[in-house]
Design a protein around this nucleic acid. Structure first.
Lengths: 338, 338
DNA sequence: AAATTCACCGAGAACGTTCTCGATTCCTTA
DNA sequence: TAAGGAATCGAGAACGTTCTCGGTGAATTT
């Protein structure tokens, strides 16, 4: 069994002083004699004292724990966001409890409903794509738990949100294809209903309209976010009588899937078909032809989300903020007709 | 400020019964009347009662929290291991607190020394490659904290460990190159001193000796684990007068780096130079020519590690176990001379 | 009918902290 | 020289649970 760690009482007993004094000496510098403080600190080190976070959490009603809920972690975007979150959490002395939903709505709900908010100071969430998540997230926000959404946010909930500029990124991606001479541009995207999906779709549509290009329903395919979905979508597009000459993929994984399918179909990527993705996953520069994309500021999204959550936690009445970070066009081989 | 959640006392007061009874009703089914139990459960739901884990943790000296310490998370291998860990943690009702060291020894030590073991039931660690980690891990193990190492383990510490079969994987990879006609086989690997590095190096060396092939010191390069290191190592190898005709990379990222460099040098990968990696990172099938590799059972390593840790936590006197899982050769274009 | 057992429940201590309220000593000031 | 103030510390309640111990009344046994 676990050995018992030394407590504040043990220190007090060893020095024949009160627990109050030890407690004070261990935290504040005021209201305690410098010598006493030194004594306490030395004895604490000697006894290998480690504060019991359950006890402090109980009385202060605040542990330094933040929960992070992600659809997946085996994925460039989310793991990079997490790294950003962790960077500011670490430098502020917060711990991160990570939950992965595997993009499963039921699991997400189960996780949220079983969270112990007594040992959690706040919550960072990117929702599962299958979830109509409004109800159980609204409940915990009503309970007063600070929540920040990022990337895949829930629209009708009033709390802080951090996103990339999906609309303008999509617009820019589409315009880039148009400028490179592509005219029949398809869009393979994620599940309908998500803010992210809708915003990118709208950016794509507006770019087409602005340039007076045709919008074909058959050229817009909703499916999953995976590489495999991208492969399937591309094959489906190529079965059409009226084939597109370019594809804007909602993310790089789908874009890569499309490249793979078109290579298998012996379609020359870049010439016969232009492709652009969204994310700037390292894979997009590894694949050949390399994939043009809109780089997302994933790391910064993590940092800003966590910073926002900490502000939220620290201030009593925090007004929700929405942060929208710009993407950046990266041109590679998959969209160059030259 | 946070609204106050209902406590066990509130339930007791609302029902005019004692807290003891409420506590019993909420947990055990024995020693409490079925009707009372039902009453309590209903009132708990009505008041939106959520157990306070700080309080239970304080009295039971066991929260259901496990800490996971990883060198990185933006990486196929570690994120997959984490997913495996999380899978068994989730189904056993444990939460995971994730710390990422960025492969920085000082940060790793800082994290470990500041862990609150009072709110942690155990620890899963893959050590930083720069760390001589023995001392501070030994300390917490002496304190009785259950620890399981995986992948990058610390050799001289007696506790449970889960690894892939690095030696045999490396042996098999090297033999595969030999069977495909490569004779001058280099090895680009990670920092010396790590068990993982040493085991793979030894497998490589033994395979060469067994087949009576030359071992050249210049063909063995120790550097980091990154793709960039792989690129640099490849360029360095190609500057030699006595150039190798194949490269066994310690992991796929370095293998991919090597492929990229050789492509830049206009060296035909597969023909002029054979390359094999280790991991089966999805990138290895994306890159062209695709990278042969030894597939690691990353997900299973996570599962087994967590299962072992739970056993360790549950049993008083648990004898440390070492689990070694086999890899699997995957042949792709980078090592086929055909 | 007395004795024994059983089912169920309550009182109160304990876990390791923090925090409020006073108490004590010593120094300063009029 | 008395009064006021500052510096320092201690007692004890509180946080929300669990757990041990014992008590009550009803059911069962002899």
């Amino acid at each position: 069994m676990r050995r018992h760690y030394a407590t504040i009482k043990d220190i007090a007993y060893a020095l024949s002083i009160s627990v109050s004094t030890v407690s004070r000496a261990l935290r504040d510098t005021h209201d305690v004699n410098a010598d006493t403080r030194k004594m306490v600190l030395e004895m604490a080190a000697k006894l290998n004292y480690k504060p019991n976070f359950n006890a402090t959490g109980l009385v202060k009603n605040s542990t330094h724990n933040l929960a992070v809920i992600l659809p997946a972690i085996t994925n460039y975007y989310f793991s990079t966001v997490f790294t950003g979150i962790q960077e500011v959490a670490y430098s502020n002395g917060y711990n991160l409890i990570l939950y992965v939903t595997n993009d499963d709505a039921a699991r997400e709900e189960n996780i949220v409903r079983n969270l112990s908010f007594s040992s959690l100071d706040g919550l960072l969430v990117s929702v599962s794509s299958k979830a109509d998540a409004s109800h159980y997230f609204q409940e915990i926000i009503d309970d007063g738990v600070p929540v920040v959404f990022f990337d895949r946010v829930v629209e009708n909930i009033r709390t802080s949100k951090v996103m990339q500029d999906d609309y303008n990124g999509a617009y820019e991606a589409t315009v880039h294809l148009i400028r490179n001479g592509y005219r029949k541009i398809a869009h393979i995207t994620g599940p309908a209903g998500l803010t992210l999906t809708e915003a990118r779709l709208q950016g794509y549509l507006d770019a087409l309209q602005r340039h007076k290009l045709a919008v074909r329903k058959k050229w817009i395919i909703h499916s999953g976010f995976s590489q495999q979905s991208g492969e399937e979508d591309a094959r489906q597009l190529w079965k059409l009588n009226d084939k597109p000459d370019a594809v804007f993929a909602v993310n790089d994984r789908k874009g890569i899937g499309a490249i793979i399918s078109f290579k298998q179909l012996a379609v020359q990527v870049g010439k016969e078909i232009g492709i652009i993705g969204f994310t700037n996953d390292p894979m997009s520069s590894i694949i050949s032809p390399s994939l043009s994309t809109i780089a997302e500021p994933a790391f910064e999204i993590g940092q800003r989300s966590c910073q926002l959550l900490l502000n939220h936690i620290r201030k009593k009445h925090f007004i929700p903020e929405e942060v929208i970070l710009p993407g950046r066009l990266i041109v590679r081989e998959s969209s160059r007709r030259s």
